[in-house]
Amino acid sequence: MKQIDTIIFDLGGVLIDWNPEYVFFDAFDGDKEKMQWFLDTICTSDWNENQDAGYPLAQATLDLINKFPEHEQHIKLFYGDWEKMLGGTIDGTVKILQDLIQSKKYKVVALTNWSHETFPIAQKRFEFLGWFEGIVVSGDEKTRKPFKDIYEICLNRFNITPEKSLFIDDNLRNIEAANTLGINGIHFKNSEKLIQQLKNYNIQLS
């Protein structure tokens, strides 16, 4: 194994707690079954990921209302109340990020599936997003993980050698895609386990 010189962080689910349930649990009056049906059937993760790849939020909302007019009120909530889906920071991982940057041993960047329309909201709220050497936002690039081209954009933009890089993401699908390009990967579960996983790559934290 080559020595790691670059660490690539995913954001949502790794450093930022984002969950549509923060909006829809109340919208469905605490009925988890109805909420889950709506998120599995109407405002699905696949639908949201299309906007992560640059599709306009207003058009996506209109498309879905045309398809499911009886759910118009709840569909409008998805992006209308999107900011309320940001639950806060995942503090343990933010501390790890801070330690890695302060060590000055690594290039530290981010690669995120995120709409270019909503990402500025997160930038205003989370100071640590300014700590990275750079961030590749899928919505800006009009593509997203797990497609090969977004990883290549990240590698080329920041002059990263795949075999010397380590990618941390909470979605195994995205890790497996990175692996095909020679990028080492850690499937994120929680901050405590991440510390141990980093040690496997000879990365010690203060």
Results as ranks from 00 to 15, higher is better:
35 M>Q: 06
36 Q>V: 05
36 Q>R: 14
38 F>Q: 05
39 L>K: 09
40 D>I: 02
42 I>H: 04
43 C>H: 04
46 D>L: 15
47 W>S: 11
47 W>R: 09
48 N>S: 14
49 E>W: 05
58 A>G: 08
58 A>Y: 09
62 L>T: 15
64 L>Y: 01
64 L>I: 13
65 I>S: 02
67 K>V: 11
68 F>A: 10
68 F>K: 08
69 P>M: 12
69 P>Y: 15
71 H>V: 09
72 E>W: 10
73 Q>R: 14
74 H>D: 01
78 F>P: 11
79 Y>T: 12
80 G>E: 08
80 G>F: 05
81 D>S: 10
81 D>K: 15
84 K>F: 07
86 L>F: 15
89 T>F: 00
97 L>N: 01
98 Q>A: 14
98 Q>Y: 07
98 Q>E: 13
100 L>K: 00
102 Q>S: 09
104 K>A: 11
105 K>G: 07
107 K>F: 06
108 V>Y: 09
110 A>Q: 03
110 A>Y: 07
114 W>Q: 13
114 W>C: 04
115 S>L: 09
115 S>I: 02
115 S>T: 03
118 T>M: 09
120 P>Q: 12
120 P>L: 09
122 A>R: 07
126 F>E: 07
129 L>H: 06
134 G>K: 06
134 G>A: 07
136 V>P: 08
137 V>M: 00
139 G>L: 07
142 K>I: 10
142 K>H: 15
143 T>P: 02
146 P>C: 12
147 F>T: 03
153 I>N: 06
153 I>M: 11
158 F>S: 08
159 N>C: 14
164 K>D: 04
165 S>R: 05
166 L>M: 02
168 I>A: 00
178 A>K: 06
178 A>S: 11
179 N>C: 02
180 T>L: 11
